[in-house]
Nucleic acid binder design. Structure first.
Length: 943
RNA sequence: GCCCGAAUGGUGGAAUGGUAGACACGAGGGACUUAAAAUCCCUUGACCAUUACGGUUGUGUGGGUUCGAGUCCCACUUCGGGUACCA
């Protein structure tokens, strides 16, 4: 029998479906293991060979764990909401659901051909109402919660209301947008609206004002990278800065837990570091500065409390509420002009434009340590959103302050011994303090930092400032709350309606709130989000249903929210839903959550390092606080697969002609490099006839060949249609089969590494499977029989078991596959026909190449699937070597090799080596100073 | 600018501080074949030799530690990814 992969793969794929081989259910008798891939957005282009890389890697691990007796959950689904479908809908009127479902079908067909062990009965789609019900539900729970800083967890907002009624804000330590103080009496005196406004300050899902890139032309908010030079990337419409009231998630409240959780999970250090930087914890000091001739005091945040003696000016963010209070009449006009100018700048301009700008407020602040008066400036290099929106400037030791001071000619006082600040600031946190205080500049003669190290000085200042009531120790985080509103159609609707301008939640029993039909997917003419086009889009409080918005009377019928949720909403808890995807009563049942717990192995691209992987960790922590998810960290181990890049081919046209010159001759001509479709090229040799037929303009192309061939140039680039270098996995499956594809993708290199795809190398993987097949079938004869395996074959087998087991454990598949190749070569040489040995090889290969393994497994007479076989164990006794071939180094250079028994004594080895004529030739009669013998490693003679 | 990662033959890559280049592709040579495909065998880092089962050199660059460095340390170069004034 030939290795007929087409027939084999078709047969077993059908069989696996028919038998439900990959269905899983809770089984208390077996340990669970949860393997998850980041689910894909189903794009119209379909899969290219880069997409399945991670899926294959995780599939191998899932199958390996199953063979080791684990009950493996390995689901797949679709991140179905996304902009491309909406954009297409705007252009064509085609409902995004239609295109999305079409794309999903295509993805599914492609995925099914590769032989994954997904339990498709658990598929989720984020756009499915049965799924997004739980996205909406979680949002409502966040709305109904606040974060208690003392308990460090989410609590029902009703508890907070009760506290307010009892003691006001006294004793409340809750994460909030703004520090508020009121008494119980004041709380009780508030009207409904005022109470709602107050609570909004604490809710975990809250409406807040934020400045966004508003593009009136597109009727939408744009991300920073969608804005180029103040114009929208798509369409080139002007973009302006606009304050908008949008939903936010108070993820910043979880900053410390997000940071601490990193220590409990197995992610790469670089990824953890990226998250740590993103969270940006900085421990510093808040200090109060009072304004001269005024009652105004303001607070600044600094991590360099040691530099307080070197403050030469203060800076406020233009948005700071203190700006109005410190601006003097004389400076009013100048300040107004500056603030107007910054408002006009988009955030992007503010970021890209590093020119120094600012304006003097007219007031002076008093430095509490020196008693000196320092001018208060306003500049946009201070951000309103971080710290207190105000800083003390120490130009000698902060490069931004330095640039500002130089520009406006403000004094610079060095505070660290030996620091030369004539050209640039000295930012390093090291050295010995001087000028702290300078003579005659001490408010308190008893306090000095001079002679201390920076570290000591920071500690001393913190202590001093706290004791004197000038300030306090404060931890700040860079992590900002997530904006959760999108002015889009194709997303989850918010289950919220507005009464008297304040949002209220639909009753939980009324979820999901389904996405309404609209005539058009564009924003409305009045600039409302697309849902403004929906006619049936109002909430009837009494009848508890969605009704025509013509019925809005603000008494029982109210307008519904018009924004939808962002992409990360649906992907933040999908791993929980897979555990119990059909549950209509809960996101996940307690039983399913208790059994599957969390993801043991998560695979996906590193581009999600700070987006999805922060949001879903936050989301899960929130659910965990209420006990809806029993494990705090959702993804125990995480591996980032690298990108598969494309390999493009180039032809070289001689300028001004239709002549093409082969790659190695091109330097003799003036040429233009042109991309050509890689399907016209094999091993970099161009099929000239196919090339001529490719495009009409090349029909009468002429070629200057080398050795009778046209050799193309090549480059590693992104895999994309425009580069003509996309490789479709379907084509590989047609030509070589899924097993070869799987092997080759893993053989290419380490999973984490990015690498180019070159179909040329795939023959090696295909040949390997054919050689493996040949161990079982010779024509119509099935070779395996009951003979006793030779000692050699046993050694080959156990070497293989050991190597493959260890490599899978380390996710080092690219080294496991060569081990198979070597073993198959050895078995062929040994003419091994032992059924027992070969059956174990089949099991070892099953995770990598499941179809061929299943076929051979059944050929060997097994009735059940190879997926449920038992993973072989190696026995060291077969691996003992009786001798070792030593490399003999003389002066560190290998000069010869000598074989010694494994148990040879060092003294005997030394004697034999020194006596060897080849060794003597190199020793040249000298007396060795030292002979280093590392058993079973090396011998080195030092002269 | 800052943070993270990488750099090894023509190509993808391998190598607990111990014979660099496993394995695979490609290339060259040979066998089989009317021929092609498929298959099998040999050679293949570079350079110098070719009388040798020979020598020199070699893992981005320059230093260092070590009996011994692709691997560890220091400085630098280039490329890739992330991020954008976070006090």
């Amino acid at each position: 029998m030939e290795y007929n992969f087409r027939e084999i793969e078709k047969k077993w794929q059908a069989e696996w479906v028919a038998k439900g081989t990959y269905r899983v259910a809770i089984d208390e008798k077996r340990p669970k293991y949860y393997v998850l891939d980041m689910f894909p957005y189903p794009s119209g282009a379909g899969l290219h060979v880069g997409h399945p890389l991670g899926y294959i890697a995780s599939d191998i691990y899932a199958r390996y764990k199953r063979l080791n007796g684990f009950n493996v959950l390995h689901p797949m689904g679709y991140d179905a909401y996304g902009l491309p479908a909406e954009q297409y809908a705007i252009q064509t009127g085609q409902h995004p659901e239609v295109t999305t479902f079409k794309n999903i079908d295509r993805y599914r067909q492609q995925l099914d051909r590769i032989g994954f062990s997904f339990d498709w009965s658990r598929e989720v789609r984020t756009c499915d109402p049965g799924y997004y019900k739980w996205t909406q539900w979680a949002f409502q729970k966040m709305f109904q919660s606040y974060f208690d800083n003392t308990l460090q967890k989410a609590q029902p907002i009703a508890d907070l209301e009760a506290k307010f009624a009892q003691n006001g804000t006294e004793g409340v330590d809750a994460a909030c947008s703004e520090e508020l103080t009121f008494s119980a009496a004041e709380w009780k005196a508030m009207g409904e609206k005022e109470k709602q406004q107050t609570l909004m300050n604490y809710r975990i899902a809250y409406l807040g004002e934020s400045v966004v890139n508003w593009c009136p032309g597109l009727g939408t908010v744009l991300a920073n990278d969608e804005v180029v030079n103040g114009l929208s990337e798509r369409g080139g419409f002007p973009v302006e800065q606009k304050r908008m009231r949008q939903w936010n998630l108070r993820i910043s409240a979880y900053a410390q837990r997000l940071l601490d959780g990193l220590d409990t999970i197995e992610w790469t250090d670089s990824l953890k570091e990226t998250q740590r930087n993103w969270i940006g914890r900085s421990e510093g000091t808040e200090a109060v500065f009072s304004v001269k001739d005024s009652d105004v005091k303001f607070t600044i945040f600094t991590t360099r409390a040691d530099t307080m003696f070197g403050v030469t000016f203060m800076v406020l963010a233009p948005e700071s509420e203190y700006v109005a209070q410190v601006t003097t009449a004389a400076q009013q006009a100048a300040v107004d002009a500056y603030i107007d100018a910054t408002k006009k700048k988009t955030e992007l301009e503010r970021k890209s434009d590093h020119k120094v700008s600012g304006v003097f407020s007219g007031s002076y602040a008093i430095n509490p340590l020196t008693g000196d008066e320092v001018p208060i400036w306003i500049s946009d290099y201070v951000l309103a959103g971080y710290g207190t929106g105000a800083i003390m400037a120490v130009p000698a030791h902060d490069s931004r302050d330095y640039a500002f001071a130089k520009h406006f000619n403000l004094p610079i006082i060095p505070l660290i011994e030996g620091a030369d600040v004539s050209e640039e600031s000295f930012d390093a946190k090291e050295g010995i303090m001087i000028n702290s205080p300078r003579p005659g500049h001490a408010a308190d003669p008893g306090f000095s930092l001079n002679g201390l190290t920076v570290k000591e000085a920071i500690a001393a200042t913190k202590q001093y400032v706290t004791e004197k009531g000038i300030g306090r120790v404060k931890v700040n985080y860079r992590l900002r709350d997530a904006i959760f509103s999108r002015q889009r159609y194709w997303g989850e609707p918010f289950p919220a309606y507005y009464k008297d301008g304040m949002p209220y939640m639909l009753p939980e029993e009324c979820l999901p709130l389904q996405l309404p039909e609209v005539k058009e997917f564009k924003p409305t003419e009045t600039g409302e989000p697309p849902l403004g086009n929906a006619q049936i889009w109002a909430w009837d409080e009494q009848n508890r249903k969605v009704v025509d918005k013509a019925l809005i009377d603000q008494k029982t019928v109210f307008p519904l929210e018009l924004c939808t949720m962002p992409g990360f909403a649906g992907s933040s808890a999908y791993y929980l839903r897979y555990m119990d995807p059909k549950n209509g009563e809960a996101l996940v049942s307690e039983e399913a959550d208790g059994y599957w717990k969390n993801v043991d192995l998560y695979l996906g691209g590193s581009e999600h390092a700070t987006g999805h992987l922060i949001y879903s960790r936050f989301w899960n922590k929130f659910l965990h606080d209420y006990g809806w998810s029993c494990v705090e960290e959702p993804f125990q181990k995480l591996i980032n697969q690298g990108m598969i890049q494309g390999r493009s081919n180039y032809v070289y046209r001689v300028q001004g002609t239709n002549k093409f010159v082969s790659h190695n001759l091109k330097d003799q001509y003036e040429t233009t490099a042109l991309l050509c479709d890689i399907s016209l090229v094999h091993n970099d040799v161009l099929d000239v006839e196919a090339f001529k037929a490719w495009r009409p303009e090349y029909a009468d192309a002429e070629f200057i060949l080398e050795d009778g061939k046209y050799i193309c140039g090549w480059a590693v680039e992104k895999m994309s249609k425009s580069k003509f270098n996309v490789v479709n996995p379907d084509d590989i499956c047609d030509k070589y089969g899924a097993d070869t594809l799987r092997l080759y993708e893993m053989f290419l290199g380490p999973i984490e590494q990015s690498k180019p795809w070159d179909t040329a190398g795939i023959d090696g993987s295909f040949r390997f499977l054919k050689k493996l097949w040949a161990l079982f079938w010779k024509g119509e004869e099935f070779l395996p029989n009951d003979v006793q395996p030779s000692a050699e074959s046993l050694k080959t087998l156990h070497k293989l078991i050991k190597k493959v087991t260890q490599d899978i454990g380390n996710f080092s598949y690219n080294t496991a596959i060569p081990a198979f190749m070597i073993a198959v070569g050895e078995f062929a040489q040994q003419k091994c026909t032992s059924k027992d040995v070969l059956a174990q090889v089949v099991v070892l290969l099953a995770p990598f190449a499941p179809h061929i393994a299943e076929e051979l497994w059944h050929n060997l007479g097994n009735g059940s699937t190879v997926c449920d076989a038992q993973w072989p164990k190696w026995d060291e006794k077969y691996l003992v070597e009786s001798s070792f071939k030593y490399a003999i180094q003389i002066q560190g250079k290998v000069r010869l090799t000598m074989e010694f028994p494994s148990d040879a004594q060092n003294a005997d080895i030394e004697k034999a080596v020194l006596a060897h004529p080849d060794a003597q030739k190199w020793i040249q009669g000298k007396t060795p100073k030292k002979v280093i013998i590392v058993p079973k490693k090396i011998v080195n003679i030092v002269l």
